[in-house]
Structure formats: C-alpha cells, structure tokens
Design a protein around this nucleic acid. Sequence first.
DNA 1: CTAATATCAGGTATACTGACATAC
DNA 2: CGTATGTCAGTAGACCTGATATTA
Lengths: 146, 146
Amino acid sequence: MDDTPPSLLYAVKQVELSVRAHLDDVLRPAGLTTPQYTALTVLARRSGMSSAELARASFVTPQTMGDLVTTLERRGAVSRTPDPNGGRRKLIALTTQGRRLLAGVADDVAALERRMVAGLDETEQGALRHFLNRCRAALSEAPVRA
Amino acid sequence: MDDTPPSLLYAVKQVELSVRAHLDDVLRPAGLTTPQYTALTVLARRSGMSSAELARASFVTPQTMGDLVTTLERRGAVSRTPDPNGGRRKLIALTTQGRRLLAGVADDVAALERRMVAGLDETEQGALRHFLNRCRAALSEAPVRA
DNA sequence: CTAATATCAGGTATACTGACATAC
DNA sequence: CGTATGTCAGTAGACCTGATATTA
C-alpha cells in the first residue's frame, strides 16, 4: 500500500510543512508571516542589503520581495535609505522596532527548534546540519532556473 | 560576519526554499503548483481520502484544501465521489489524467532529488532520511496548534 | 444535540508575468 | 548602448476566519 519509494524530497517537504505550520502559529500573534520573518532574520545578519539581493537570497522575484519589504516598511520594521554610493539601490535595514519584533518571537522560535530536534543527540544534530548545508550547496550549484 | 547561532530551523528553511523554487520550475511547465503536486503524490499513495483528511495531512484548513481540490478537479486530475458508505464525505481519487500528470514530471523530480543529495553517500542519505523523519515525528507529538 | 464534513463569502499575503523608468 | 534596480499594474493561487448546511 505504501511501496512508493520513500523520497528524500518528500521527507524534506513534510518537515518543512510541519515547521511552517508551527512557525505560522508562533508568528501570527506578533503579526508576522513566515516569509516576513525570514527576511527579517536575513537582515539581522547582514543589514544594508538591497531588495534585489534579498530577493535572490530568498529565491523569489524582485517584485515579490519589493512588496514584502513595503509591508515591513509600513509596519516600521525596516527602513529604506538610498545607497550613499549613489545609484538607484536602496539599502534596507532593520529598525529598532524590527529588532524588537524579532526579539519578541525569539524564545518561541528557539523552543520550536528544540522540540524539532528533541529526538536527536548533539552529534546527530551536527550531522543533520552538515547534510542540510550540503544539500543547499548542491542545489545552488547547478541552477535549474537557468 | 556570520556569528549568528546557526539555527537548524534556518537550515531546514533554506533547503526548503531552494527545493521549492526548483520544484516550481519543474512543475510550472506541467501547469502544477507545489501544493497541488504534493496533494497528488499523497493521493497516489492512498486513493479515496476525503478533503478533510487531505487537509490534515498537509497542515492546512479544510477550506484551503477544498479550493485546491476543486482546482485539480476542474483540471481533470482528480474526481470526487460520494462515500458509498453514506455520509457527507466525498472520496477523492486520482484520475487517469492525474496519474499521467504525475508521471510526466516524475523524471524531473527524481533528477532534482538526485542533484540535492549528490554530495551525500548512501549511508548519509539514509541518516538524513532518518533524522528528518524523527524531526517530523517530534513536531507532530506536541502540537502548538492546540 | 454534537461532531465531522463540505461549502460559500470575504479578506490578506505570496508570487508570478509584463511593462516601464531610472541610474550607472 | 545595456544591465541592474526599483516600481506599477494585473492575475492566480494559497491561505486564513467566519458562517451555513448536511448528515451520521
């Protein structure tokens, strides 16, 4: 009944679906969606990215990211300032309010991660992280999106 | 530059974002979205599920799944038939056309998976699958979505 | 009455294509 | 000129809450 080849793609997708649902629940009270949260965490690491860079990092079109950033800007979580080096680029940065938003959900997100890996010891967690990083690298190498 | 605690949640999300983008590219020419494809693969394993069951398996509301099934039905990929045991349930099944759709993308999806795990040997692939399954199980156990 | 299911109405955020202006 | 960026317009699909009907 279940002799379908147990696809790794499917396993990743199932974990992701579950993570996504839980993350949505954690983020909703804070008024954040998962893509918005993702963009904020990326900005927390590297402030001053352009919308186009952010779009490439998130595998979406510049238009989609533009809309998302506009939403976050209206909410006061990020600011857009013209690139001091000139050009059309606008550099996006977390505001104090944005940092507060991230801090407000940090505990719940950490708890979610702890629950996800509850069944794995430290060595296994390290291995999982390693495997996932290699998968991500492999997918970046030979782009389908030619 | 990158001293943020390397979150496993983040690692899963990054792989998923990349998988999703590649999968969208593979599926788009066939006129399928990723959620639609997922539903079809679930039905390929277990035909005759109700929309509500499908929704639970995919972590979405019955309404959302209902819309998705309606779209697939209009496209001729699935059929809805009243439960022969009576009741309001409608059993959803893949049609020949639906099976053809799945078969049409199977090669490309398999190629995508091969590329994703290209950097892992068989033992590592097995471990990754094992870890992912345990993560999924752990997330199902203690529902946030009380 | 209750619980599960299906469905209608509506709303928002995601994401796309296409087009266009701006700046190097 | 050509390329990257930002943005406007329109569309489709994914997702939600709330309300309603049906049926065991």
